[in-house]
Simulated assay, not measured.
Amino acid sequence: MTKQLLKQWAAATAIAFCAAGAQASTWTLTGSLITHDPSVYKENSTWWITETSDTGIGVKFSPDGHAWTQGVSIFGGGLSWWGQYNNNSKTVWAPDIHVWNGKAILYYAVSTFGSQKSAIGLATASSIATGNWTDKGAVLTSAPGNNYNAIDPNFFVDKAGQPWLSFGSFWTGIYTTRVDANTLKPTGSWYHLAADSTGIENSFIMSNGSYYYLFVSKGKCCDGANSTYHISYGRSTSVTGPYLDKNGVDMLNGGGTTLDAGGGRFIAPGGESVANGVMVRHELDSQNGYNGVLFINDLTFSGGWPTY
């Protein structure tokens, strides 16, 4: 979840990356690549990304997942109810886009840096491409003194076809709860999945084979050369945990196997999401003002563990 505002969309159109020499499964990307906290979903033949933005919910689209175009922001003028959580700005963090029960759904967060006065909002549309978004307001909130923070939402569906929402940032970490299949609002018990004293956020849960996998971003996201963001994971046979890393350490106790720590020109990978067999994330470009840049890799599993 980013804590800085990105204002250089246009600069992205001049950037093209091919890192195949370093990682054979890294996709060649062109077009609008400046991003932070990208959430990816493929609807029919079109790839979509929603992203953190200081003008509503940022949107990108691509016909093939390689060439990206910046779209029109969703709720770019801001919504009145956001103001109590983000100091009357238009900023939205870490939107999470999916299709569920025949309609497009979009969870997103509004807050300010270092604050627990936060909210997760929900919007729906007939389809992503149609873009006729209707806001449903806040579905989860937090306040100073709570032991959780209501940001960084991630919608996922378990193997029984039941919908869930994971969320959380810093404080006591990551949680998940069932959501109602119709209203998409949280219902029932909360389950504590992961914590880390160095910082933890941006949860993403998926299933593969016999396991559920919890991906998180750990460390500092946005401190230039001092950024320490990295993507870690654990797995569990139950959607509610415990999630253990390769060494058997529970992610509630700071566990997590590093998937990607970056290095060289591009550092501090995070804000990850997965769809159609690929992992999407941002990495900071040390040669371009440490702006977040879009990266996509084929995500595979070896011996029951994710890799790319």
Rank of each mutant, 00 (worst) to 15 (best):
L5V: 12
Q8S: 05
A12W: 00
C18Y: 05
Q23P: 09
S25Q: 07
H36W: 09
V40G: 01
E43F: 14
S45E: 15
T46E: 04
W47R: 06
F61M: 09
F61W: 15
D64W: 11
D64C: 14
G65N: 06
H66S: 12
W68C: 13
Q70D: 11
S73K: 01
I74C: 05
G76P: 02
G78E: 12
L79Q: 04
G83N: 14
Y85W: 11
N86M: 07
N88W: 14
K90Q: 14
K90P: 03
K90M: 12
K90A: 13
W100M: 10
N101K: 10
Y107G: 04
Q116N: 04
A119G: 12
S126T: 14
S126V: 12
I128E: 02
G131P: 06
W133V: 05
T134P: 01
D135E: 15
G137Y: 09
V139P: 01
N149M: 08
V157P: 15
D158A: 14
D158Q: 14
Q162P: 06
Q162M: 12
L165C: 13
G168K: 02
F170K: 11
Y175V: 02
V179T: 08
A181C: 13
S189R: 15
Y191V: 02
H192W: 06
S197D: 10
T198C: 06
T198L: 12
S207L: 10
N208A: 15
N208G: 13
V216K: 06
C221Q: 02
G224L: 01
N226T: 01
I231F: 10
G234E: 07
R235L: 06
V239M: 11
P242H: 10
K246D: 15
K246P: 07
N247T: 15
G248M: 09
A261R: 04
A261L: 03
R265T: 15
F266Q: 00
G271F: 01
E272D: 08
S273P: 13
A275P: 01
V278A: 15
M279Q: 08
S286K: 05
S286M: 02
Y290F: 09
G292K: 00
I296V: 14
N297V: 02
T300G: 11
Y308A: 05
